[in-house]
């Protein structure tokens, strides 16, 4: 089975679909290390985003993944760690 990868583009697409995008933020800019809160996403927006990632990528995210991952880089890494673990198993 090919290993699926969760990319920044996937995250941006899912954020836009599920929670919209703040007009004052350029999601296409350098956002990897910007805090989600600065990008305009509160906890409920991340919950919705997490649900969509789970659905699309067939994984289960623990609640603390979403609260601990404060930035896109951290969330992408957490999701890919799960995807890698799934592929390895």
């Amino acid at each position: 089975m090919a290993t699926k990868e969760f990319t920044l583009d996937d995250l941006k697409r899912i954020l836009r679909e599920g929670a919209g995008a703040d007009e004052s933020v350029d999601l296409d800019g350098d956002i990897l290390d910007t805090d989600f809160e600065e990008l305009g996403y509160e906890s409920l927006a991340l919950l919705e985003t997490g649900g969509r990632i789970e659905r699309e990528f067939g994984i289960t995210l623990d609640d603390d993944v979403l609260t601990d991952a404060r930035t896109p880089r951290a969330l992408i890494a957490a999701v890919n760690a799960l995807l890698g673990a799934g592929a390895a198993a």
């Binding site: 919209g20 703040d22 007009e23 409920l44």
Partner: peptide
């Protein structure tokens, strides 16, 4: 309205 408000 701001885009962020539309999906919610």
């Amino acid at each position: 309205l701001p885009n962020r408000l539309l999906p919610q």
